[in-house]
Design a protein around this nucleic acid. Sequence first.
RNA 1: GGCCCGUUCGUCUAUCGGUUAGGACGCCAGGUUUUCAACCUGGAAAGACGAGUUCGAUUCUCGUACGGGCUACCA
Length: 466
Amino acid sequence: MPDAVVTRFAPSPTGFLHIGGARTALFNWLYARGRGGKFLLRIEDTDRNRSTPEATAAILEGMAWLGMDHDGDVISQFDGADRHAEVAHHLLAEGKAYKCFSTQEEIAEFRDAARAEGRSTLFRSPWRDTESSTPPDAPYVIRIKAPQDGETIIRDQVQGDVTISNSQLDDMVLLRSDGTPVYMLAVVVDDHDMGVTHVIRGDDHLNNAARQMTIYQAMGWNIPIWAHIPLIHGPDGKKLSKRHGALGAQEYQAMGYPASGMRNYLTRLGWSHGNDEFFTDEQALDWFGLDGIGKSPARFDLKKLENLCGQHIAITDDAALRHEIVNYLAAANLPALSSDQEEAIERAMYCLKERAKTLPELVEKAHFALISRPVRQDEKSTKSLDDVSRRILSELTPQLQNVKWSRDELEEVLGAFAQAQDTKFGKLAGPLRAALAGRAVTPSVYDMMLVLGRDETLARLADTAG
RNA sequence: GGCCCGUUCGUCUAUCGGUUAGGACGCCAGGUUUUCAACCUGGAAAGACGAGUUCGAUUCUCGUACGGGCUACCA
């Protein structure tokens, strides 16, 4: 029987949660949650100089926005320093690691020379096999004794079997000369101690996997199942960087993309389930697997994101959209809606959500329901309010006094009115839009009347008819 | 420099030796219409290149080109 799945997302807190990291987290989350497994979160903060609490907070917020909940506490890798050192010393005692007294200057010199001569820059410590000689009274690092013959095969679920010659493996540092553990050791120890069964991470770690395997083997630990996923590139095909603009998860939230659409897009980016493009979280959880992950890097495409977001907005229920809008406004640092406005936007939602791709578009289209009298006219709507139009509006208003306030009825009355004026409804629509919304671009006139209600509609018409 | 990975329409991708190489986004044209959208119909658009294996390669192998990654007492 297979063990329960345990995955983890292990970002370093050196900046916000970028889109590539978000997708890595998502893949781990989907894989674990789709199989009733656990999804753990570990902050790789062993580099004290580059780690900041602000970055950790930003990562947590980004994950919360995308709805990726983790099991247990957030683990700080730095907190496990003692345990990491303990493993290093255990390996030292076992003779599987050794003290290396070479200084950083010596090593740098060696590498420069090697590179200049076109030789391998792999550093071979002279201290690897000198246990008997008397150790100098000087600072040292602890290095692992990596195998030098044979080869290491990374059995990767995405990349296939990747064979690395052990002659390429260096005796990497486990413990720095100040006694602190290095990332390469810490990941292995933490992943083992946390019971991680599947390591799903960016393929920038593919080569590292071979080096990390030497630690697993030295400790006699089971090697997790590897899955190294390709990185995401920017629209220009280059590596994703801050130069591409807003790339933090938070910023996409502030731009008004709904989390459900973002999840869908990110999941589909580099992963496929036949030709399925648009799917719900339930389907993603059900379908997601390592075998559907592609091997080549994908570019981030806002158009596709928008399209998917539009489809998600269309199927989200009105009350949920109301809450998403409230959260979006806060994330974007925009003024909040009053409770009346919130109710109005929820009431109007039915005629807005099938035509908006993003949350701000939803708010924009809801303009008519958010404003209060007197309606202020923008430039374009002013043009449709000449004297003739105003006269027509004033003739129309009384006719709406006693009709049944339903779409069918309104269509009939307005249609008949247009005919009586010897014109078409299309001619009436402009002035009506102006009167009701103060704009030339609005939802359907009938929908606006229904959302606004009889009293408000008549009041706005009367205001404008003058 | 050494080692590793990748390469199907502009973009995301399907294909698990035999297909008119399919879908989606975007784009173009037409339709519908109450403005903007949405929606409907149609269209243009791809196997990096070169060898080899095979009756037959997008698919398997090798090479080249291009892109990416790793090569720290960073993560």
